[in-house]
């Protein structure tokens, strides 16, 4: 098991968001967390990154317990995280953003370089010297993903990557995610865009009110209109 979230509870100050949540992710698997906004999707990813304090439960990653580690140690262990707000460094150029994310993996050859990023995401290539803060939303999203890939992660957490993007960019993103799976990377998405999510994922989870409501294959969920209506639609 690549990532194993074992009955965690978490929240901000006295406010609780996650209640006893369980979730698992295998190597080379693309999995999506679905749920309405406010359900706890982002908080789940942030808790894995130790950016939200855990109040109960354990998190295991590649056979090691990581819930007592600090954010940078988790990142160095091979966990890549792309936040919902993208959080690129606005005053740095595109190339500098990529350099800030560069990190060599332990004991294997790096699979990511600027050249490879630009090949896969050709839209970024001519923007190398541009200040990242001046990029469009879609370009910033590409950059945020690329910056994290430069750290050669073995697992990628993507928080609402399709939010606010044009359909063509969403399609590009889907292609990218499939490419990553081809290389054995595990990807955990948090999404509201059900169609995009189910199109790229192997497995799907639904969370609502901070707890897991469904876990299964994307195909199963595709067939369960009742579940979608209950937890995702109005």
């Amino acid at each position: 098991m690549m990532l194993s979230i074992r009955s965690i509870s978490a929240g901000y100050g006295p406010a609780r968001v996650l209640f006893d949540l369980n979730l698992e992710l295998r190597a080379g698997e693309i999995s999506v967390i679905l749920g309405r906004n406010g359900a706890g999707k982002s908080t789940t990813l942030k808790t894995v990154m130790a950016m939200v304090p855990l109040s109960g439960g354990q998190i295991w990653f590649s056979g090691k317990r990581i819930d007592q580690r600090s954010t940078w140690e988790i990142a160095r262990a091979g966990m890549g995280y792309v936040p919902e707000e993208r959080r690129i460094f606005p005053d740095l150029s595109v190339l500098e953003n990529l350099e800030a994310g560069r990190r060599l993996p332990h004991g294997r050859a790096p699979s990511w370089s600027v050249a490879r990023i630009f090949k896969l995401l050709p839209a970024l290539a001519p923007l190398g010297e541009r200040r990242a803060g001046t990029l469009s939303g879609g370009e910033q999203q590409m950059l945020a993903v690329a910056r994290t890939l430069m750290g050669n992660p073995s697992c990628l957490l993507l928080d609402e990557p399709s939010e606010g993007l044009a359909p063509a960019v969403v399609e590009l993103l889907a292609t990218l995610v499939r490419t990553l799976r081809g290389e054995g990377m595990a990807v955990l998405l948090a999404e509201q865009n059900v169609r995009f999510a189910l199109a790229v994922s192997d497995t799907a989870h639904i969370i609502e009110k901070g707890g897991l409501r469904f876990s299964g294959t994307a195909r199963q969920l595709q067939e369960r209109a009742d579940l979608r209506a209950e937890y995702l639609a109005l």
């Binding site: 954010t71 940078w72 350099e99 990190r103």
Partner: peptide, 24 residues
């Protein structure tokens, strides 16, 4: 320098820098 780059990155967004594995 890479060090300077990381300084500038962490000055802009300390938490995100950590999420990229930068040892603060």
């Amino acid at each position: 320098t890479r060090w300077g780059l990381l300084i500038r990155a962490a000055t802009q967004d300390r938490e995100m820098a950590a999420a990229l594995g930068i040892n603060q």
